[in-house]
Amino acid sequence: MTSVDTSPPGDERWGDEQRARERELLDTLSTSGEGSATFTAARDELITMHLPLVHHIARRYRDRGENYDDLVQVGTIGLISAIDRFEIERGLEFSTFATPTIVGEIKRHFRDRTTTIRLPRRLQELRGPIYTATEDLTGELHRSPTVREIADRVGVSPEDVLEVLEAQAAYSAKSLDDDGDEERGGVASTLGFEDPGMEEVEYRESLRPLLDKLPERERQIIMMRFFKNMSQSEIAEQVGISQMHVSRLLARALGELREGLTAD
């Protein structure tokens, strides 16, 4: 195996040292307790280490009308889920294992996008600037900006901003079997269904199987928002995606849950 170049594509500078470090970190993950400080540190370092891989993959999709930063964000979700599901005993190279998951997340993002409202070209072109302004303002103000603030920053009307935001949110309830199985598992244990809040909910018997059917990330976001009472912005920060994306996923997941709960 030593002659095979296992560098993540896009980063040819990986030397033996880094490869050894990767091994070491993956070992740490499999041996230390989930949630422990060592575990978290190893996980974080692995994430940072493989960001070039995410960038490399995201670049392949950059010319398809999606915001590059968003692609990197969803790709990073794929990376994290790959890290969480990686089984060192299976002897696979991590980058080989992670690549399909990252690609899967990015493709999924495109599928999500195609279900949303078609915007007129003028507004379509505002998506990037609005996204950037929102992220910048969130950083500057340490809170979610208002529509007016975004509009002022971009130099358009609040109505335009609202329209773009509305188009971002995918409210159309999609069928539950739309998503590939490859996105489930792994992280499930990090946000199990034993959250205290859920015991109060009468639906828990019928809700659980439905939550199980949701893609991992949507389930995670649902738990964070409704059972841990985190704000959309807090979730965005923790999961590493934009607040707009959190809101889009929440809307979709709720639609699916509602459809499922009322189906019988």
């Binding site: 979610s144 935001l165 509305e166 929440l250 809307a251």
Partner: peptide
Amino acid sequence: RTMAAAMAVRADLPIDQLEDLRLAVDE
């Protein structure tokens, strides 16, 4: 939902609250 979002803009709510409100009215 649309109306709720428009009113949230008038009340100058931050967009995370605006999106929450949209979901709440929907629900």
